[in-house]
Simulated assay, not measured.
Amino acid sequence: MRIKAGLERIPGGMMVVPLILAALINTFFPELLRIGNFTEALFVDGANALIALFLLCTGAQINFRNVGVSLGKGATLLFVKWLVGGTVGLLAFMLADSNGLFMGLAPVAIIAAMTNSNGGLYVALVGQYGDKTDRAAYSLLALNDGPFLTMVALSIFGIMGFVDGLFSPISFIAVLLPIVVGMILGNLDDEMRDFLNSGSAMLIPFFAFALGMGIDFGAIIEGGLGGIILGLLTVFVTGSAGYFVFKAMKWNPVVGASEGSTAGNAVATPAAIAAASSAFATHVEIATVQVAASTVTTALLLPVFIGFLVKRLEKKGVKIPDDYMTGEEKRHTA
Score class of each variant (00 low, 15 high):
Asn63Ile: 11
Ile229Lys: 01
Lys81Trp: 01
Gly104Ile: 13
Ile35Gln: 06
Lys4Gln: 12
Asp164Gln: 09
Pro253Cys: 08
Leu141Ala: 05
Ala272Cys: 13
Gly100Met: 13
Ile173Arg: 00
Ile173Met: 03
Ile10Cys: 03
Tyr122His: 05
Gly86His: 02
Phe54Asp: 06
Gly146Ser: 10
Gly120Lys: 06
Gly264Lys: 01
Phe162Met: 03
Ala292Cys: 03
Val163Gly: 00
Ala279Ser: 13
Thr115Trp: 01
Ile286Leu: 15
Ala257Gln: 04
Gly186Val: 15
Leu232Arg: 05
Ala137Glu: 09
Leu149Trp: 02
Ile215Ser: 03
Val17Gln: 05
Asn118Ile: 10
Gly264Asn: 10
Tyr138Val: 14
Leu101Lys: 14
Glu40Arg: 04
Leu55Gln: 09
Lys4Ala: 11
Phe79Ala: 15
Thr298Tyr: 04
Ile62Pro: 08
Leu211Lys: 12
Leu196Cys: 12
Gln128Trp: 07
Gly46Met: 09
Ala106Asp: 12
Ala268Glu: 10
Trp251Pro: 09
Asn66Ile: 10
Gly72Leu: 01
Gly224Pro: 13
Asn99Ile: 11
Ser98Asp: 12
Asp134Arg: 03
Leu50Thr: 08
Leu101Ala: 11
Ala75Lys: 03
Val80Tyr: 02
Glu328Val: 09
Leu101Val: 15
Val181Ser: 11
Val69Asn: 10
Leu140Val: 14
Asn66Val: 15
Tyr243Cys: 04
Gly68Tyr: 06
Pro147Lys: 01
Lys132Gln: 12
Asn66Cys: 07
Met202Pro: 02
Met249Arg: 11
Trp251Cys: 10
Leu149Gly: 04
Gln290Trp: 08
Ala201Trp: 06
His332Met: 14
Leu232Asp: 03
Phe236Lys: 01
Leu50Cys: 07
Met94Tyr: 06
Lys81Asn: 12
Gly120Pro: 11
Phe54Val: 02
Ala275Pro: 05
Ile229Phe: 05
Thr234Ile: 03
Thr27Leu: 10
Leu302Cys: 09
Val108Cys: 06
Ala257Ser: 04
Met192Tyr: 12
Val17Cys: 12
Gly260Asp: 01
Ala275Thr: 14
Gly89Lys: 02
Asn187Ile: 14
Pro169Cys: 05
Gly146Ile: 10
Lys250Ala: 11
Asp45Gln: 15
Phe167Ser: 02
Met325Phe: 07
Thr262Trp: 00
Ala137Ser: 15
Met160Asp: 02
Ile220Thr: 06
Gly36Arg: 09
Thr298Phe: 05
Val88Gln: 00
Pro11Lys: 11
Thr262Cys: 03
Trp251Val: 00
Gly264Ala: 13
